[in-house]
Design a protein around this nucleic acid. Sequence first.
RNA 1: CGGGGUGUGGCUCAGUCUGGCUAGAGCGCUGCGUUCGGGACGCAGAGGCCGGAGGUUCAAAUCCUCUCACCCCGACCA
Length: 577
Amino acid sequence: MRMSKLVGRRLKEDPKDAKTVSHQYLLRGGYMRMVSTGIYSLLPLGQRIVAKIEEILREEMNAIEGQEVLMPVVLPAELWEESGRYQVVGAELLRFKDRNEKPMLLGMTHEEAVVHMARTEITSYKQLPAMLYQIQTKYRDEARARGGLIRCREFTMKDAYSFHVNQEDLEKYYERAHQAYVNIFRRVGMNNVVSIEANSGMMGGKVSHEFIAVADCGEDTIILAEDGTYRANCEIATAAWLFTKEAEQALEKVHTPGKKTIEEVAEFLAAKPENTGKAVFYQDAKTGQLVFAVIRGDFEVNEVKLQNLTKIAELKFADDATIKAAGCEPGYASPIGINKKNIVIVVDRSVVESSNLIVGANEADYHYKNFNFERDLGAADVLIADIATVRDGDPATTTGAPLRLSRGIEVGNIFQLGTRYSAAMGCNYLDQNGKSMPMVMGCYGIGVGRAMASVIEQNFDEYGPIWPITIAPYEVQICALDPKKPGISETSEKFYSELTAAGLEVLYDDRGEKAGFMFNDADLIGIPFRLIVGARNLAEGKIELKIRGEKDSRLVDISETVELIKQLVAAEYEKFR
RNA sequence: CGGGGUGUGGCUCAGUCUGGCUAGAGCGCUGCGUUCGGGACGCAGAGGCCGGAGGUUCAAAUCCUCUCACCCCGACCA
C-alpha cells in the first residue's frame, strides 16, 4: 500500500474527548472515527488489525471443533420473551417495532438466537457436543459509552456457544475453551491477561471466568495475590480474614453526642474501627424489601455479594423514611433489638466472629459497647455470610499471601450456563434411552474492538502504538526520504515490489514528506519493521532498519535487506506461537 | 438517572463576562518557490448561516428563553 493513497489522516494534536491511551492513538493514528456516541467507523488501518484478530479467533475456535455461523443482528422480541430476558434486561436492550408494529430488538448477545438454531438442528445425543460461534455486530445501548473502543455501543464480538449432554461434558469442554482463550490473548500480543473467577450476573449459570487485561485505564477492579495463587474479580473476591474472640463483657450504653461515622465514634470512645460494627440499610429497588447488613467497621459491604446472597437483582441504599418506618434510627441503626420480622438481616462473618463491638443504640447520640452476636442478636432468622469487600493487603485464602488490587479491562468472558436457556426455550435432545433432555450449555465471548484497544493499552510508547506483528496493519514499512534525490525512489520501489512479491505486507511511504514528519506518522502506525531509504546511507550501499519500540536502528547492506527482512518477520511470528 | 462542563472552518482553540469594524490564530488542505534524517519557511489561496429555534436591540458568536448534541465524574453494565 502506498501511503500517498491511504485513507485515514493522522492527527497532530490529541482529540479533546479522548482520555485513554488507546482512544487517543486510535484516533490520532487514523484507525477509526467516531460517528455518534459510542459508535465508530473503522478506517483501513483499523479494519486490517481487526481482520487479523478475527482470523486468530477463527483459528482457535476451529481448533476446538467450533463451527462458524452467522445469526441476525435484528431479532424478534418473542425469542427473548421465551427466555424471559425481554422483561429482565433494561434500557441497554434497544427495542423497536417494524412496519407491522411487531416488537423487534437489536441483539446484545445471542443465547436466544443460537438456541433457536440448535433446537431445530440438533435433536440427538449423537450430534453432541457441538459448538457454534460467530463474529458479528452487537448493539448495547450503554448508559455511558467511554474510552473509545473500550466501551462502546456498537461493537464486533466473537461469541461462541457449546451444547452438551451433561454438566460433566460441559466442564471438560469449558477447560478447552479456557485454554483457547489463553492462546488467543497470547497470539494477539496481550502480555498481561489474567483469567479470574467472576460474578455471572444476569447471564445465569454458576461458574464463569473473566479474562482481564491488566491496564490502569480498566474499569474493573481485580484482586490478585502477590504470589499468583489467587485471582478474582473484586465483586466476588474473598480473603482469609482472621477474627479473634475475647471474653464477653456486659453490654453498656454510652452517650456519643453528634458522632455518626465509624471514625468519629471509634475516636470518641478511644477504640479502633475494627472494634466497631457498622449497620447499613439497603432495599430492593423493585419491591422495596428492606435489607439490613451488619459488618465490622473496618470493612465495606460488597453489594454484589449481598445481591447474590439475597437474590435481589438491584439493591439501593434505603431512604431514611423507609428506615424509620421499620422502627430504626438512621445513623444510629443497631442490630440490638431489631425487629426481625419483614427485614432481611445479613450479618458478615467479621461480626459473628468478633467480640465486644461498638454498635448503634437505635437512638440518636447513643451507642452500645460490647455487642456480641450470639448473645445480643442470635442466629435465628439471620443470614450469616461473607459480604465483605477485599482490601489491599488482606491475606489470600490460598497461601495467605497479600492480596493486591489492580485495574483491568474485561477482554473475554466464559460461562457455564447449564440449562438456563435450553430448559426455558425447549432446546432438547433425545438421549440413548429416547428420553428428551435439555442441552447443557456454555458460552464464550471476546470483544474484537476492545481487544484491539487493549493491545494498545499494553503496547505503546510516547509516540504511538507498538503493534505485535500478528495483528499489525502491515509487517514492514518503507520510508523513502527525499525521493527526488538519485536512487532513493528507485531503491524504495524495488524493495516495495520485492517484499510484496515475497508475500510480505508492506506500507510504502512514497509521499516525499520531511523525514521527521514521516517518522512521526510511522510511529503512530506502529508497524514492527521500518526500512529507511536515505541518501546518506544509500551512498554507502546501506539501508537503515528500525524496529518499532527499539531505540537504536541498524544499517544493512542493500543486497541483503530483502532476505534479512523475510527472516526477521518469520522469527517475529515465532514469538507468538 | 444525578452532578459538572463544552458546542466558533477538517483538527486544537481564542473571542462571550463588558453587544458594535470585513469573525480570528495555530495545525491541516490547494498552488508556486526555497528547504530536506525526528512534525521546515516564504508568498498566494480555498474553507465558517459561531449546535438549533425563538426573543430583546438600531445592532447578537456575545444578552434572555427553550431545545439538541457531545464530554467528564458518579449510578448502571450480559
